[in-house]
Design a protein around this nucleic acid. Sequence first.
DNA 1: CGAGTTTGACCCGCGC
DNA 2: GCGCGGGTCAAACTCG
Length: 456
Amino acid sequence: MEGEPSVCRELLQIHERPSHPQLHISEEDNKDAAPSSTFTVEEPCINNSSEGFGFISLNLNAEQPSQIEEKPLKLRMLRIKLDQVNEENQNLRAMLHQITKNYTALQSHLLLAMEQQQQQLSSPRNHHHQLQKDERHDDMADAVLPTRQFLDINKPPQSDDNIQENNNKTNVSRKIMSTENVDCDETKQVKLKLTSELAKAVEDQVSETTWKKARVSIRARSDTPLIGDGCQWRKYGQKIAKNNPCPRAYYRCTMAIGCPVRKQVQRCANDKTILITTYEGNHNHSLPPAARAMASTTSAALSMLLSGSTTSTAGTTQLNPGLIPTLSTSASYPTITLDLTRPSNSPMQFQRPSSLSSFPSFPWPSYGFTEQSIGFPLSSKQPTMMASEKNLTLVDIVSAAISKDPNLTAALASAVSSFKGATQNSNNCTQISVSGHGTTSKTSAPLLGSGKLPQS
DNA sequence: CGAGTTTGACCCGCGC
DNA sequence: GCGCGGGTCAAACTCG
């Protein structure tokens, strides 16, 4: 930098690295600069015609050289420094604008992917084809959606310092609740953003659970022994539990060695068409897209349970008669149950594809599922009816349930709110049950990678 | 033959 | 300490 007008060199360097347009002028540099030099600071600005930053020139010294000589050099230096600060401020503002822009674009992309997934659920013939697309979308969604798996257990107790943070997270939930009824593009964007915030909050909150073990239980009608959930399981035991003639099967996740996630599958004693699947533990590996959706869903449910963050009445006011949270103190561990077996008065209509119009009408409305998409009804006369396409997964049921119907989220909130009060009277043995719309499923395909179905 | 299931035995926590 | 019940283990078994 010796003996040359360093400011000009600096500006050249700035042009060469527009992504980091920092102007650095030291006093040493200006000692070498000729007194008559014109100092030019370029301010970054948003270039609308192309991506990245553009520049506008700001000439700081329009004075004549003779006038410059009259002013102390220190004043000019201060002015330059001031403009440096302004420039940095502008730069940060521009970067923020760009990030916001990218974020919005990403959200739109995610929304589009979610809509495509819903369409895919409605048209099972495209199911396989769409799976590949979804996988690509899912890679992108990884940056937004939480990767927290089914549950977190054995986490350290929540400290008092986290209470304020939790309150903030609670506000995120409330914000989502409060926007449920508004339906416009802008609101969709806001909701999507808030959902993302909630997902992050979920991830944080779940890790702060005060309970050693917590579970998510899902009740769904199914004639088959298992409902696929995107994961690979191995049965390691079976037991006849008390007060239930139906055996309880124990499964362990085999997608990775040492994965601690387990699940129990048992039919309801009162209604044997209801299959109760209970998840426990936290995957120690990456999940396939379907299982990841399930993980997000169950984590969200569990998070609501663990945070007790639903003192807001926004959720309860939107409950429809089919979403009736109930409380039980029979569970050994804190358990949140998503009951997808009860019918509701949802305005969403059950769309029957024309190809199945000969089948009788079933009373269970669904979260946008068609009979075809959920693989139902399947009579014994049609045992080979699109087995792969009709593999309704638990992911489909629960994810669609929550994404399609905000009332289920509200129901969760309401249930947790009730639970919060209930836990004051009972110790860690409270079970929450949240009833959603009735969905009945019948799957013909086994679980991923599992060659055999358990004979429970 | 390997992967997955079955099933009786065993372990462990909890209540009395 | 004892019994009960839920959960897990592991050898035997099944299946492709």
